[in-house]
């Protein structure tokens, strides 16, 4: 049943879909090469196995990292620009701790209704959280890349030494998000096609 005479609305407008998939490529390349870079001087007592890293060696990984950072940043700016102008950002609000708690409990009871085209409170929190991690990872990354010329980014992260940890934990946050995101797509596979075709809100 369409509301009045309105045309069916797309679930995901094309700028969201385009930036989503470009971002997926950027994240895979940045995390894969980033793990290889991490392995050259590990912050913790482990390294990432060569099978899941990108670049083959430190020099190759840095080349990939410095290439795809442009895709990550420009694509991210396009997404934020589009979302701000189009009102897409409004979909992430309102958001309250109570609504997150309620939806989280409902989700674990397998009782959370999937409303097409509407984000539940947990989704809103996750998406806003990963956007924040994205901003943090770019700022800390710039601070690590150019601690002299872009010293304000380095200082913002508490100095070069701490910036590496900030960069790592932002990566970890994004990796955890990707894991949850993919797990939810597996649980509710019908959400995948609209992210490719756009889909239509028909009910």
């Amino acid at each position: 049943m369409l509301a009045k005479t309105e045309k069916p609305r797309v679930i995901h407008p094309w700028p969201v879909r385009l930036t989503h998939w470009l971002n997926a490529v950027a994240i895979i390349m940045m995390i894969g090469s980033g793990w290889q870079i991490y392995d050259a001087s590990p912050l913790f007592g482990f390294t990432f196995p060569g099978l899941i890293t990108i670049g083959g060696w430190l020099g190759g990984a840095i080349a990939w990292h410095l290439a795809f950072m442009w895709l990550l940043v420009i694509n991210g700016l396009l997404y934020f620009g589009y979302s701000g102008i189009s009102g897409h950002f409004a979909k992430f609000f309102p958001l309250s701790p109570a609504s997150v708690w309620a939806d989280l409990r409902a989700a674990f009871r397998m009782d959370l209704k999937h409303e097409t085209g509407v984000y539940n409170a947990v989704q809103k929190l996750l998406y806003l959280g990963v956007m924040f991690a994205g901003v943090v990872i770019v700022i800390s990354g710039l601070g690590i890349w150019k601690p002299v010329q872009l010293w304000f980014f380095t200082d913002l992260c508490g100095g070069y030494f701490i910036a590496r940890y900030v960069h790592f934990f932002a990566m970890a946050a994004i990796a955890i998000f990707v894991a949850i995101h993919l797990a939810l797509v597996l649980l509710v596979p019908k959400v995948l096609p609209p992210m490719i075709t756009g889909g239509r809100i028909s009910s």
Partner: peptide
């Protein structure tokens, strides 16, 4: 001054 290695340590 600080010497930063391409590997990440300083």
């Amino acid at each position: 001054t600080r010497l930063i290695c391409v590997e990440g340590w300083r």
